[in-house]
Design a protein around this nucleic acid. Sequence first.
DNA 1: GACGGCTATGGGAGCGCTCACACTAGCGGA
DNA 2: TCCGCTAGTGTGAGCGCTCCCATAGCCGTC
Lengths: 359, 359
Amino acid sequence: MSRSDGRPERSRPTLEEVAAAAGVSRGTASRVVNGSHRVSDATRASVQEVVHRLGYVPNAAARSLVTRRAESVAFIVAETESRVFHEPFFGRLLRGASQGLAATGLQLVLVMAWTAGERSRVERYVHNGHVDGVLLSSLHGDDPLPERLAASGRPVVQAGRPWTPLRGVDYVDSDNVGGARTATEYLLRQGRRRIATIAGPQDMVPGVDRLTGYRAALRGSRAVPSGLVAQGDFSRESGERAMEELLARNPDVDAVLAASDLMALGALRVLRASGRRVPEDVAVIGYDDSEVARNAEPALTSVCQDMEQMGREMVRLLVGRLEAAPGGAGGQAGGDGAGAPAPSPPLVLPTELVVRASA
Amino acid sequence: MSRSDGRPERSRPTLEEVAAAAGVSRGTASRVVNGSHRVSDATRASVQEVVHRLGYVPNAAARSLVTRRAESVAFIVAETESRVFHEPFFGRLLRGASQGLAATGLQLVLVMAWTAGERSRVERYVHNGHVDGVLLSSLHGDDPLPERLAASGRPVVQAGRPWTPLRGVDYVDSDNVGGARTATEYLLRQGRRRIATIAGPQDMVPGVDRLTGYRAALRGSRAVPSGLVAQGDFSRESGERAMEELLARNPDVDAVLAASDLMALGALRVLRASGRRVPEDVAVIGYDDSEVARNAEPALTSVCQDMEQMGREMVRLLVGRLEAAPGGAGGQAGGDGAGAPAPSPPLVLPTELVVRASA
DNA sequence: GACGGCTATGGGAGCGCTCACACTAGCGGA
DNA sequence: TCCGCTAGTGTGAGCGCTCCCATAGCCGTC
């Protein structure tokens, strides 16, 4: 044993070496390391002592090769770093996912993939078997990424409904239609009649759904329903532009529902610059209930979605799939046979209107 | 071959199957997949065709088992999700790292580790061999994590200087002392004489270094050097509290250097509330040159550190280590022998004062 | 006292890949 | 003619682990 001489061993100890040092077989050492109960207490203790003394850590590649599991899942965000770090809800989504994963032994790794190179690299990363499953967020229109990832045979759970149902891709959605409708109905109840909206991008599902909710609430009411829609891209600047446009077209607008808090902030600034008071002259409601809503002047009434819960639910769905899966990669995600996994029933989380000073 | 019948193969094809289908040996197929040049054009083409047709993707675990490489590096952030997503510079640091890694084949994965459970899990993740190296950020005081990660034998590069030199841990620092000194000297040149500072936490290196720079500039000048130091934790709220404290102690202060933009923002608010004009009555300088500095009212003069460059330099250091490494895990990171890696010369990136309206 | 059953352990096979080496064919120079 | 040399290819070993089956020891039971 070269271990007993002065110099430290160059390479990490293997299970074989641990077993030899403890005077047992490789199989028994493996059982101890993996916590099997069919080992005598004495043996277990002596193996554990050796593991500790030698600093043994199992080799993930070797284990993964036979178990076909990586014991980790990826959270893939199809966005640029700067975008991710400016959208406040990512942090909460991620925290929810972390919480959901805490009980399992799974490691969560976050991967940003925006450029074509990053996308193909992360695709390879998943197909390679580096992770057992994928949580996915922030997808524009009909991004091919979710399906391509699902083609790896690994479960994929997306944050937010995809444009069209995708085989092999489950999702957790937020009730965007209901949230926008509730907010609009609240404005109506407050006596507002010329209610405008700053819609989100119409190539993103939340953008479309929130506009749908707004229109649904207005249908059949006495409010003026047309011409009061401007569009932004969820950013503050786009909110300013949209608000200017709305004021130019309809100076007598008395309420605005923005599809994001940041756009609402932009609207606030433009309204103030135009000499209007919020909420006296114009009521403003945002969407997301982010920190900026609380800190705005006046504090922003906003539609709250529990992003942490969404993260947790995504993990719950994913872990369910993982436990159901027979081995690792389940095959080409095709297979009309009995093995075809039934899609999980879509999960739609409720929203809540948080009333503050702005409406 | 069951591949030729109707149903899709359940499991992914192996290199052996690819080789058989192409009529070559496993070794040759491997050479094609890995881009070796010692393969005839005809053979290469036929293997590539089979790879494409069968959708072959190499098994990362099997490859990693023999190469002792995972072809990926982790960016570990010892912070909570919410903290990470509020500090504006993380995004830029990460983007720099992404850029630096783009040319290599390495996948970047981000891991947040704050709770004890998360920390021990990520430690295991690194020791396991899931990644070839580690980029590390946001460490309070003398966190044991960097050293524990370095004990895996994998290279570790930290963002920012550690309290004390750590064996096996390289770092890239920003010239915090110089940045704070330059900003303070600028205030002196503008004729300010009662220059206060809102220092960062003194259990973090940047907090200490920026205070050092401030003091260095003031030493030997005619400005009043003492009693004008308050402390915050880099957050906006702490900036407000510190500014109130400063005003209470020294109502005649005519300039403030804050150790972060967010704290400067808090100071701005308190100064305005106290009836003081910025910059006429009190000049304010922030630190980080983040987006909020540009958007502040008045726009904030701030010390700019190029975080993207820092990310790129961290990757450069890490990749250098990776290429120097003989195999994968190099041993216990100890070893007084010839193999002990010399620490890289500390890299300290310059800072720049960006002058805007507030000072 | 032989036997079934049950628990703790040993050992072989093999996961899918890379790498070092062996080997073949073809070519030019001695 | 023979020998080396090189380009192209095949082959065996083995990375470190888990899983399965065989086996040894030990109990209770008829």
